[in-house]
């Protein structure tokens, strides 16, 4: 599904990613862990198409297509979803209007007619239930005045609405209390199918108690330095990241 080869990325001339290689197959859940500043969020942003970053080398192929040639909106319509670490507040844009526009753009891409108002509302209702998000929130402007937990729930709600093939969840667990974490993780698990894949980016192992990864990668200093099964997450939780740093000579 996703194949990243020798990806080098810089921002303002400073190299952040220094040759990432990653293969993800349909149905897999990959966790990417690593200390602060390793480049985890940069990888997520580059996948979604943020133009602050410059790709200096390498390629990203998503379902046979060169992702780097595509605008963010086209990547989204091809099935990539980024769950933002810091979801943006957009005063004046209602969540309903935002989602209706997004869903219909996706449908247009697939050659489908826009949803009728009633079908759209039904879809909203179903997906809201899935992530236990309050109508009071979806009736407001996008993320405006939401708490940290509400913003993260709203990300998963949007993911549920758009049904991506590849979801990249960037520190979706940060700042969540245990109840919110459970709700968010449950939402992600309910959306899981044998065809779609997930990249879970996290600093801590706790989220991985709920979203069980098939593969865990450790990203350090712009490279993937370790790849193993889910037991790696536990080892990192126990020992921290210092031994990784030492092994890599920093």
């Amino acid at each position: 599904m996703l194949s990243i080869k020798n990806l080098h990325v810089s921002i303002d001339g400073k190299e952040i990613l220094k040759g990432i290689n990653l293969e993800i197959k349909p149905g897999e859940v990959h966790a990417i862990m690593g200390p602060n500043g390793a480049g985890k969020s940069t990888l997520a942003s580059v996948l979604a198409g943020r133009d602050l970053y410059e790709v200096t080398e390498g390629e990203i192929i998503f379902q046979g297509k060169n992702l780097l040639d595509m605008a963010p909106e086209d990547r989204a319509k091809e099935g990539i979803f980024l769950g933002f670490q810091y979801p943006i507040e957009i005063p004046g844009v209602s969540t309903v209007n935002f989602m209706k526009t997004a869903v219909n753009e996706h449908r247009k891409h697939k050659g489908l007619d826009p949803l009728t108002a009633s079908d759209f509302l039904r879809l909203m209702r179903d997906k809201k239930a899935l992530v236990e998000i309050d109508s009071k929130l979806t009736n407001r402007s996008v993320n405006e005045g939401f708490s940290g937990g509400e913003k993260k729930k709203n990300e998963i709600f949007q993911m549920a609405m758009l049904e991506p093939k590849l979801a990249v969840l960037d520190e979706t667990d940060s700042g969540l209390d245990i109840d919110a974490l459970r709700i968010v993780a449950n939402g992600v698990n309910k959306l899981k199918t044998a065809e779609n894949s997930t990249i879970v980016i996290t600093h801590y192992q706790r989220l991985l108690d709920y979203i069980i990864p098939d593969v865990v990668h450790v990203l350090f200093d712009g490279r993937i330095v370790k790849t193993a099964g889910k037991e790696l997450a536990l080892e990192l939780e126990e020992k921290g990241y210092d031994w990784i740093k030492e092994e890599n000579g920093k």
Binding site: E73, R75, I88, F98
Partner: peptide, 16 residues
Amino acid sequence: FYLRARGIDEKEARQM
């Protein structure tokens, strides 16, 4: 970027 990352094209996102 947030709007575009959800599949809304740039022109429409600016408009919104």
